[in-house]
Design a protein around this nucleic acid. Structure first.
Lengths: 225, 225
DNA sequence: CCAAAAGTGTTAGGAGTACACCCATGG
DNA sequence: CCATGGGTGTACTCCTAACACTTTTGG
């Protein structure tokens, strides 16, 4: 039985929401192939390194971003996806709060910046396909998990939360229905703090309360918007 | 930058429903490591072979089973999961109708047989974990897709369909509510044929009608039992 | 007092769940 | 006529979706 070895990489699709838009973090490649093209942060796994560890390491090395929500996305293994030969990539899906985007271009990448997830530049390899798969996953997960909170600071207003949902789903949500749903889910704790967004009435800050998370998960769907 | 090569395998968790129970297809290993242990069908990918192709090929080689519903499940890459060294496995999830289980032990496996998915024998490697992940995926997909139909012959009775759902979900469903839901979804076409199951009144045969599938997928949840 | 954003309630329709009896058939 | 499995309807509850005005604040 043949046992061909393969090169294995990890690639990370990391999202944030900034200025009411879903954004994805890309790095500009400093070496061939696809030199100067934008790409998902990622790279080769090391020996004796768990896959998830490699994803977090590459993300931090190339962008300076750490402490993110991370989960495996999909494994792409088409024999022609990398001109260098057989390279299989295990892609990961990550989220980071809008207030924790401390970018720093690293050694491997000439540059790192956020791009609109819906309008990225031309991407290296099959990274466009991976990105689209990530957007789809995010939309789906939004409906039955609490991932939306991963994209916000620890303290946030209900309007900010709604904007995150609207940015990801790509459509407007009714303010009253949105708030009633959150009230019903009982996962927000109101704080004794108010902030002024622009020039109007100040909004009350809330924090996410994981207290009820297990119960809600059992019940099934969390956010059926 | 280090570029360690890795061995890449595919493993297939394939389910059927037989005798009102969810069953999984396992093969008995003929070689070390874990010789004589039961394992998921699978093996090393070939050069220039797409991952999905490898999964289908290994499944047929080891069990004789072909023409199945197949989708990628998860990639397991813990450095210690295989005593031979760094082996990453891309696992696949498959379904086959109860009337198409033409098993044939192949070259790699000493034997292949169906086991109850909830009570498998001791498994090689981390295959127990992979199996449990597959069961979870099946339960989840049942609720928002039409995978249930993959487990039935082309023509089936409503009672047979309900038994499939009950076997996977592990609980009884209300007959009237189940039928109303199927009626509402409008994905079944009744045929002018009746079969007798046991000794009672004959049941009408139906077939799955993919006609409405796209519409339903847009609508979101398909089978919220 | 005005502009801007926060906050708040009601109603109607659709889906889910619980529940029990009659029907058709062969032996 | 009886045993066996197939097939049917109703009432209640809960969630969803549509919809507009008042409140608070700073300038």
């Amino acid at each position: 039985m043949p046992r061909p070895q393969a090169l294995v990489t990890v690639d990370v699709v990391i999202f944030t929401v900034r200025e009411d838009a879903l954004q994805v973090l890309l790095v500009q490649r400093g070496a061939a192939p696809f030199k100067d093209r934008w790409a998902l942060p990622g790279g080769f796994i090391r020996e004796d390194e768990p896959l998830e560890h490699a994803a977090l390491r590459e993300l931090e090395e190339e962008t300076g971003v750490r402490d993110v929500y991370l989960e495996q996305l999909y494994t792409f293994g088409d024999p022609t996806r990398d001109p260098r030969g057989r390279v299989i990539t295990v892609s990961y899906f990550a989220l980071i709060a809008s207030d924790r985007q401390t970018l720093a271009a690293g050694t491997d990448a000439a540059a790192a910046r956020w791009w609109p997830a819906g309008a990225p530049p031309p991407l290296a390899f099959d990274h466009r396909e991976i990105l689209e798969y990530g957007v789809e996953r995010l939309r789906n997960k939004l409906e039955y998990t609490t991932v939306g909170f991963q994209l916000l600071p620890a303290r946030f207003t209900l309007t900010q939360l709604q904007r995150v949902y609207e940015a990801i789903l790509g459509r407007a949500l009714d303010k009253r229905n949105f708030r009633r749903k959150m009230e019903l889910l009982d996962i927000l704790t109101p704080l004794d703090e108010w902030v002024r967004e622009g020039t109007g009435r100040p909004a009350q800050l809330h924090r996410f309360s994981a207290r009820q998370f297990a119960r809600l998960k059992d019940k099934g769907i969390l956010f059926p918007f």
